[in-house]
Design a protein around this nucleic acid. Structure first.
Lengths: 166, 166
DNA sequence: TATTGTTATACTCTATAACTATA
DNA sequence: TATAGTTATAGAGTATAACAATA
């Protein structure tokens, strides 16, 4: 579709939007999400699956409710994600013997392998998306986003300890 | 809901996710989008309406197709947005007399007033969301996001000229 | 009666594609 | 035949709420 000759069409976002950090954050966040989804899809998984496996790898025996809370997912949504992971053989659900309403979720050996693959994929995506930035700029960006995350993402609050320690 | 005593539940995102700038960008972008939507909703509008009015304020006579292209919206989606703006009296559609398939979109005086209000709202939202950052850090963040935007957001490409000029 | 996990439902957002009127 | 705008449809993603089992 070539630009019409009878009218000088606008070529992109208005300047006043581009000069808003929040606007850029929203658009870039959506773009990053879309690109991630597509990339994970080629691996037959979703970023959510990666988050679940990464959480399980932290060593704590997690019930479904705890997983949903830690990742900020709806518990109904989590059921389907765990179904998929279980079908793929990456996790197992095991009933808690002392409280039979609860199910612990355990990662299997092949789940650990999948996690490794997902880690590499995640690193590639970071690398690709942040390619325009130098290493120093990437560190800057991460530090700034972390500050915002601690204020705005309830599930990032605990990082206060981490960032203080590192 | 208090944490159960029988199991040490995870309290938030896994560290490996938090250490990814892309992960934080995605989550913060979604949060920012949600908060913006809610705030604009109280004003009876959407961020998209602001984008459209801001574009029209740049002075060029825009057809609907040009608006959709400039903002990256689906043309079918734009129809509804313009309907709402027109119902509110903020824009008018006027047929192009030389090519009667086309409609120019013009902002009305009360549309200009609405734009002023939306600008104030947008500034407030930026201020509120970036509150954890100093002025210098906000500039840093904006510069970094702009670099990424020029690489990843097609409709931000033109800013190369702007940022070089400023 | 409250809680864990499951299922069903509905609602938003978006993408696609059919449709009209004009060219 | 192709294009500008409109309308209709379908899909993904998400949130809500009803439900069964257990406490």
């Amino acid at each position: 579709m070539q630009t019409s000759t009878t009218q000088p069409a606008a070529e992109g976002y208005p300047d006043e939007l581009i000069s808003s950090a929040l606007f850029l954050l929203k658009r870039l966040g959506m773009t990053a999400k879309d690109e991630s989804f597509r990339a994970y899809e080629e691996a037959g998984l979703h970023p959510y699956h990666y988050a679940i496996l990464a959480l399980l790898d932290e060593g704590v025996r997690e019930t479904q409710g705890a997983i949903a809370q830690a990742l900020g997912y709806d518990k109904g949504q989590l059921v389907g994600l765990l179904d998929e992971l279980e079908r793929a053989g990456f996790v197992e659900r095991r009933r808690d013997t002392v409280d039979r309403r609860r199910h612990f979720v355990l990662m299997t050996p092949s789940g650990r392998e999948a996690l490794e693959r997902l880690r590499r994929l995640s690193a590639e995506l970071d690398e690709r998306f942040l390619a325009p930035l130098t290493d120093a700029e990437r560190d800057q960006l991460h530090a700034l986003l972390l500050k915002l995350a601690q204020a705005h993402l309830p599930n990032c609050r605990k990082v206060a300890a981490i960032s203080a320690a590192s």
